[in-house]
Amino acid sequence: MSEKEKLKITAILLAGGQSKRMGRDKAFLKLGEKTFFRIIIEKLNVYTDQIIVSANKDKEIYLSQLENTDINSVFVKDKDPYAGPLNAIVSCMPYIKNQLVFIATCDTPLLEPELIPFFVKKIDGYDAIIPVVNGKKQFLNTIYKRAALKIADKVYEEGKNSLYAWVNRLNVQEVAQEELKQVDDSLLSYWSINRPEDYERLLNIWQKDYY
Rank of each mutant, 00 (worst) to 15 (best):
S2D: 12
E3N: 12
K8T: 02
L13N: 00
Q18F: 15
M22I: 13
G23Y: 04
G23S: 10
D25W: 03
K26I: 14
G32N: 08
G32L: 09
R38W: 01
R38D: 10
V46R: 06
Y47W: 00
I51M: 10
A55W: 09
A55V: 14
K57H: 03
K57A: 07
D58E: 14
E60T: 15
L63M: 09
Q65K: 04
Q65W: 03
L66R: 13
T69Q: 14
N72M: 09
S73G: 00
V74S: 10
F75C: 05
K77H: 07
A83Y: 06
A83D: 14
P85A: 11
I89T: 12
I89F: 00
V90S: 11
N98I: 10
L100A: 11
V101N: 07
F102P: 04
I103D: 05
D107C: 15
P109E: 06
P113L: 06
P113H: 01
E114H: 11
L115W: 04
P117W: 06
F118M: 00
V120G: 06
D127E: 03
I130D: 05
P131T: 00
N134D: 15
N134K: 13
G135M: 05
G135Q: 12
K145R: 13
A147N: 04
E157D: 14
N168E: 10
Q173W: 09
V175M: 11
A176K: 12
K181R: 06
Q182W: 04
V183H: 03
S189Q: 08
W191H: 04
P196W: 12
E197C: 04
L202S: 02
L203V: 11
N204H: 14
W206E: 08
K208G: 01
D209G: 13
